[in-house]
Computed example of a mutant assay.
Amino acid sequence: MSVAREDVTTPVIVGRSSSHFTRIARIFAAELRVDYSFRVLRDLLSSNPEDYGGNPALRIPVLQTPRGVWFGALNVCRELRRMSSLTPHVVWPEELEAPVLANAQELVLQAMSTEVTLIMSKLGGTAESAHQSKMRTGLTNMMAWLEQNATTVLATLPSNRDLSFLEVTLFCLVRHLEFREVLPMTSYEELNAFCQKFETRASAMETTFRFDT
């Protein structure tokens, strides 16, 4: 259901059920028990900012709230945390002071953006260029690094955390690569083991990737 910005009385997340960036926001909403309405972006090739909840970058997710509009997954998650009546220990990107953690977060977000570019290029019907080939190689390299360092990353995160932006983004990335068939993930044993554990959370089960109809 489309909700005009001036009519928002409860939170609205604008996005797609097939989007890994959207799923990050929806997992945080579920974990933080923040009720929201979901407005689906129907046309990924639209150039109308209003279809993207007013985001001039033409990106999702967007969170519309009574006090304003928030662009991007991290901004949305921070606002959901502020809106929540719960007080979980959430580990944010700026708290990742160990190099292995900071680098993992950087590579996860880079890999997510790279994947989107490859998907959109294919959707646009363009033949793969040398630049896109380089991006695909970079994506494979990033996933190999994350696989190699997954155990260390998870062991280095604060043990008393309830949730971390890094884990949510990593989970969404790995499962999305499978869902969109961008990169086969069967050989990534450490990443798959992490995902199998994470997806037992109710928030993950409630936000399974699917194509909106």
Rank of each mutant, 00 (worst) to 15 (best):
Q196S: 15
A25G: 00
R136M: 10
G72I: 07
M112A: 12
A127S: 07
M120G: 09
E50H: 03
F71A: 06
F209W: 04
S129W: 02
A127G: 06
V40W: 14
S18V: 06
R180K: 10
L139N: 01
E147D: 08
A104W: 00
M185S: 05
P11M: 05
T9I: 15
L96D: 00
A130C: 08
A73V: 06
A155E: 13
S47L: 15
V14Y: 04
F171L: 11
S37D: 14
L118R: 01
V168I: 08
A98Q: 15
L123P: 09
P56L: 00
T169M: 08
R210P: 11
S121W: 09
L32V: 04
A104F: 00
Q148E: 08
T156N: 07
F171C: 11
L32T: 03
D43Y: 14
R39Q: 14
V76R: 06
L86W: 05
A104H: 06
T213P: 10
D212I: 11
S47Y: 10
F194P: 02
T200E: 11
V34L: 08
F198A: 11
V34K: 05
A102R: 07
C195H: 00
R180G: 07
L44V: 15
S37M: 03
P11V: 02
C77A: 10
E6Q: 13
L157S: 00
T186Q: 14
R201D: 03
E106V: 14
L173S: 00
N103V: 11
C77G: 08
P56S: 02
V3W: 03
N48E: 06
V168R: 02
E95P: 09
T200N: 14
S203I: 01
H131T: 11
R23T: 02
T208N: 12
M185T: 07
M112F: 05
L107E: 06
D35I: 04
S37I: 12
L107H: 08
Q196C: 15
L123R: 11
S37V: 07
P56R: 00
T208Y: 13
V91N: 03
R42A: 15
D7C: 12
A150H: 08
L166T: 00
V8N: 03
T117Q: 14
G138L: 10
A204V: 03
S46P: 07
T200W: 11
P93Y: 02
Q132L: 09
E50R: 02
L63F: 10
R33P: 04
L139S: 12
T65C: 07
L80A: 01
V182F: 01
R33S: 12
F38T: 04
S203H: 00
R161A: 09
P11D: 01
E181I: 09
M1W: 13
W92R: 00
A57L: 15
I27R: 01
T151D: 08
T152Q: 12
F211I: 13
A25P: 05
V168K: 02
V100T: 07
E147G: 13
T22F: 05
P88Q: 05
A193G: 14
E147C: 02
V182P: 02
K197L: 10
G15W: 08
L170N: 05
R201M: 03
S187P: 07
L101H: 03
H20G: 12
E94I: 02
A30Q: 13
H20P: 15
R82F: 12
R16T: 09
F165D: 07
T208K: 13
D51M: 06
P93G: 01
T117E: 09
E31I: 05
